[in-house]
C-alpha cells in the first residue's frame, strides 16, 4: 500500500524529469542558432564557425542532436562553459554545495522562526503581539530581497563592520585547520543567510499563523482542554503538530524553488553558488552553462516536491492509508 504510493510519486517525478529534459533541449534551440552567440570572436571566419558547429554537433539533424544531448546529459556531460572553458558539470558541482548551504540554513531558520512566530501570533490573536508580528512579517514579505541584502550590508558590513560583505571565505588566507576555515565560512554566511531567512520568513509565518488559527478552532482542542491538559500543553502537543503539516510541506517544496531563486541574494553577496553562476551565464550569454543550471534548478524543484510528499507521508497518518 505505502510502497505503491511511494513508487507512484517517484514515477511521477521521473516523468516530470524526462519532460524537463526535452523541454530544456528545445528551449535553448528555440532562442536562435547558438553559433551566432558562440562566434563572438571578431573576424571569425566561416570555417572557424563551421568548425565550432561541428564541435558542438550543431551540424547534425535535430533528432541526432537530441540523442546526443540525452546521452551527454545522462552521463553528466553538460558541455563546456563558453566563458571559463571548464566543463559545466564541474562548475555546477563546485557551486552547488554553496547554494545548498545558503538555502538550507536559510530555509531551516525561516521555518523554525516562522513557525514559532506563527504559534505566538495565533495564540495571541488580536493582541499587540499579533499585530506586531503581522506588521513585521508583511514588511519583510513586501521588501525586495536585493534591498534587504543591501541594507544588511550597509548596516553590518559598512556602518558597523562586524561581518564581511561578500564571498564565502576570506580570500588568500591559509587556514590553520578545517575548523578555522569553517568558522570563517560561518562568518561569511551570516548576512546572506539572514537575507534568505527574511525573504522566506513572512510567508512561512503567515502560513503557520493561519494554519494554527484553524487548528485552534477544532473540536479536539476543546476536548483536550476538557481532559485537564493545560493550554500550553494542548498547544505544544496537539495544536502545533497538526498546524505544522502545511508549513513543512511548503518549505520542502519551496526549498527547490528557492535554490533556483537565490540568484538575487547570491549576486548581492557575491556568494559563489548556482544563482551567481546562472546570473553570470546570462550576462555572458553562456548557453551551455545556462542550460546546465536550468536543468539543475528543475531537478531541484522536482526533487523538493518529492521530498515534500515523503515528509507529509511520515508526518500525517491520514496520507498513509490513501
Amino acid at each position: 500500500m505505502s510502497g505503491r504510493w511511494l513508487a507512484g510519486k517517484v514515477g511521477a517525478a521521473v516523468l516530470t524529469l524526462v519532460f524537463v529534459l526535452v523541454f530544456n533541449f528545445f528551449l535553448f534551440r528555440a532562442v536562435g542558432d547558438p553559433t551566432s552567440q558562440l562566434a563572438r570572436l571578431p573576424g571569425a571566419t566561416d570555417e572557424q564557425i563551421e568548425q565550432l558547429r561541428e564541435d558542438y554537433g550543431l551540424d547534425k539533424p535535430l533528432l541526432g542532436q537530441f540523442a546526443d544531448y540525452v546521452g551527454d546529459t545522462v552521463t553528466l556531460d553538460l558541455g563546456i562553459s563558453q566563458t571559463t572553458r571548464e566543463p559545466v558539470w564541474d562548475e555546477i558541482v563546485a557551486a552547488l554545495p554553496w547554494t545548498l548551504l545558503l538555502v538550507g540554513t536559510g530555509t531551516l531558520l525561516a521555518t523554525l522562526i516562522g513557525a514559532w512566530m506563527g504559534v505566538k501570533a495565533a495564540t495571541h490573536r488580536g493582541t499587540r503581539t499579533d499585530d506586531g508580528l503581522l506588521g513585521f512579517s508583511l514588511f519583510t514579505y513586501a521588501s525586495p530581497e536585493y534591498w534587504i541584502g543591501i541594507i544588511l550590508i550597509l548596516v553590518f558590513a559598512v556602518a558597523w563592520p562586524i561581518f564581511p560583505a561578500g564571498q564565502q571565505v576570506t580570500p588568500g588566507v591559509e587556514f590553520a585547520s578545517w575548523f578555522d576555515e569553517a568558522l570563517d565560512v560561518v562568518d561569511h554566511l551570516i548576512l546572506p543567510m539572514t537575507a534568505m531567512t527574511l525573504m522566506l520568513l513572512g510567508q512561512y509565518f503567515l502560513i503557520m499563523r493561519s494554519s494554527m488559527v484553524d487548528v485552534l478552532t477544532e473540536d479536539f482542542i476543546t476536548v483536550k482542554r476538557a481532559t485537564g491538559l493545560s493550554r500550553e500543553r494542548v498547544i505544544n502537543r496537539h495544536a502545533v503538530p497538526n498546524a505544522l503539516l502545511p508549513l513543512v510541506t511548503l518549505s520542502a517544496i519551496q526549498f527547490g524553488a528557492v535554490a533556483g531563486g537565490a540568484i538575487t541574494i547570491e549576486t548581492v553577496f557575491s556568494w559563489p553558488g548556482l544563482g551567481e553562476l546562472s546570473f553570470n551565464a546570462i550576462n555572458d550569454k553562456d548557453f551551455p552553462m545556462l542550460q546546465g543550471t536550468f536543468l539543475v534548478f528543475s531537478f531541484g524543484v522536482i526533487f523538493a516536491n518529492l521530498l515534500a510528499d515523503v515528509l507529509y507521508f511520515y508526518l500525517d497518518p491520514r496520507v498513509q492509508s490513501r
Binding site: 479536539f220 476536548v223 483536550k224 485537564g228 493545560s230 503538530p241 497518518p317 491520514r318
Partner: peptide, 28 residues
C-alpha cells in the same frame, strides 16, 4: 483557579462532543 480546574476536568466531569469527526487529534 485554572490549575485547580484542571484537576476537576475529566476527573469529575467529562465531555462527549458534538459530532465525532473532529473530537480526536488526527495525528495521534
Amino acid at each position: 483557579t485554572e490549575t485547580g480546574m484542571r484537576l476537576v476536568r475529566w476527573r469529575h466531569i467529562s465531555l462527549v462532543f458534538q459530532g465525532a469527526m473532529n473530537s480526536l487529534d488526527p495525528v495521534q
